[in-house]
Amino acid sequence: MNKQLLIIGKPHSSKTVFITQFYIRLQKGKSKLKLYKPVADLSAITAAKDALVKGEEPEPTDAGRSVNMILPIQFNEQQLDLYCPDYGGEQIKTILSTRQIDKKWTEAIKESNNWIFFIRLNSINRQRDISNIIVTGHHTQGQTTETPYAVAEQSSLIELLQISLHAKEHDYHLKNSKVKLTVVLTCWDELETKEKPRRVLEEHLPLLLNFIESNWLTDKLNFIGLSALQFPLSPENKVKYETEGSENFGYIINADGDKTKDITELISEAI
């Protein structure tokens, strides 16, 4: 059985753009990697592919659709499957809301020892609470408008990892030495930062980072930044895509903060 690289990400964590760009690069021979066989089902990325050719921002995947996406990759002598069992991320949402993990996910988690965890930091609102502002009288004397409970994104990402570790039958007594976890901070260009990816995660989601580092051995952890598009597809940038092809854009930032123009390098970061 081939090594499986599992992509885990909530809806709108930019999985579509990455996989589509990744596929286009492979197809155009713009990568050291190759497909070892044709992709059986491309329907998940067809629309996104068409959009990128025209320099348009792909529509977010309809979260209701649940399509398996497997890219069969030849990496040196090795055959790998980049596996995204839940393209729209709908099942991830369901896992979190119903607390039910289906068989397909359990199996995918069990079979993969390389998890790629997609997080789009820019879509996460920073919540103000009484610990991070100076509260004055008017904060506490107004009528208390009860806002409906919504789980904090950080808590839900931690729970998602806890559920995944549970499916993997992880023993918390020991730090994880079996599964390599690559945290991918997507839409890196939106973050407008020069910091290293780990530092950026620490700034935005410190408890998630604390949880991860508390449960994984350092050499089984990697933090990278990914910008699959390189920039937002504004009208000027649209022209660049139309004339040069989307495969010439996008980059990743490795753990040391170095930039690589080939997004398919993400595979060598994750294995």
Binding site: R128, D129, I130, V135, T140, A152
Partner: peptide
Amino acid sequence: WDELHHKLKIEKNDVAF
């Protein structure tokens, strides 16, 4: 935990506790 945390969020300049 998260439900408790929710009560300390500041919404419309207001804290529920």
